Every structure is written in structure tokens, then in C-alpha cells.
Simulated scan of single mutants.
Amino acid sequence: MPSPDPRPRIGVSVGVWRGDEVLIVERSGDPFGRVWSFPGGHLEWGESLDAAARREVMEETGLEIAIAGAPLVHEVILAGDDGATVRHYVLIVFAATAAAGAEPVAASDAVSARFIRPEQIADFPVTPGLADFIARTRATVG
């Protein structure tokens, strides 16, 4: 069933690094519920992209972050069984760092949140393209 408002939604996603580990959250809601991804969500009216990135990480994990470098762009178009587009998102993907001792606490629409080493990503069901964005955000933060 198509969205009642058939226009692309803008969202943010954040690859948060703590040393050599990256933050992932287990999503609770649709789409991709019970799948792991970067923290993120929708841009609110009048909100800047970087403010949305900071807010979403804080809401989902309680962490304060420092954004690094220029964001990346990722487009997600989901089709129904009949091939018709049911969701269309344009995601602005940020790289960021968290303090050395920072520990996430899952909140908002995150079931769980944890820092992992990038090579552990194969142990989790993840959103499409996450492995690539882990590598790309790591390159941004250094």
C-alpha cells in the first residue's frame, strides 16, 4: 500500500565511533524492526541536519556526539509485493565520535544499543548497506 503522502522522507543516520568501535542500535519499529543499524530518524520541520543527527543519537542512546566531516547521502526505496514504491527515504549519513568512556543506553525506538568492532557486523542482521557505511564513516573519523 503506498504511503498517504507519496513524497520522499528526509532522515539522518549517524555512524558514531568510540575508538575502534562503532555504535549500532537494534531498531524496534517499522521499517526494519529487530534489525541493527546506525542510530537515526526523521528530520523535523525547521531542524538542521546536524541538529537532527545529534538529537536522534541522544534520543536513542543517551550519547552526546561530535560530528566529523561532511555527511554522505543514501537513498532507500522500498517496494511492495506488487513492485509499487511504498516508502522512499533520503538519508543523510553522518560520521561522529563519542567520548572514550561513553556507554549507550537504549531508549526511544531502539531495543538495544552497543558498540562493536566492525568485523563483528557479520554476527548481526543489519540494514542494507550498513557495512559500507561503517567503512565510509570510519574513514571520515580517521
Rank of each mutant, 00 (worst) to 15 (best):
S108H: 15
R87P: 03
V76N: 01
D123T: 06
I116Q: 07
I92T: 15
A102N: 15
F94R: 01
D109K: 12
D81Q: 11
P104E: 12
A110G: 07
A79M: 03
D109C: 14
L78E: 03
E119V: 06
D109H: 14
D123C: 00
V76L: 08
A122K: 14
A99K: 15
R87N: 08
V93F: 13
I92Q: 15
L91P: 00
L130T: 13
T85P: 01
F94W: 13
V86L: 04
A79F: 00
T97G: 09
I77S: 05
R114K: 12
E103N: 10
E103A: 13
V105I: 13
D82F: 06
E103R: 12
G83R: 01
A102V: 15
Q120N: 10
A113Y: 06
L130H: 10
G129L: 04
G83V: 05
I121H: 12
F115N: 03
F124M: 00
Y89F: 09
D132K: 05
G83I: 05
A110H: 04
V105M: 07
I116S: 07
T97M: 09
A113M: 10
A106N: 09
V105S: 13
A131S: 09
A84S: 13
A100S: 14
G83E: 04
D123Q: 11
P118Q: 11
V93C: 11
D123A: 03
V90F: 00
A110D: 09
A96K: 08
S108A: 15
A113G: 13
I121L: 10
A122C: 05
V111P: 02
T127E: 11
L130P: 02
A102W: 13
Y89S: 03
Q120P: 05
S112D: 14
G83D: 02
D123M: 04
E103D: 08
H88N: 01
S108Q: 10
Y89V: 00
V86C: 07
R87W: 03
A106W: 11
Y89R: 01
A131Q: 09
A100F: 10
A100L: 11
Q120M: 04
S112I: 08
Q120C: 04
V86P: 00
A100I: 11
F94Y: 15
Q120T: 11
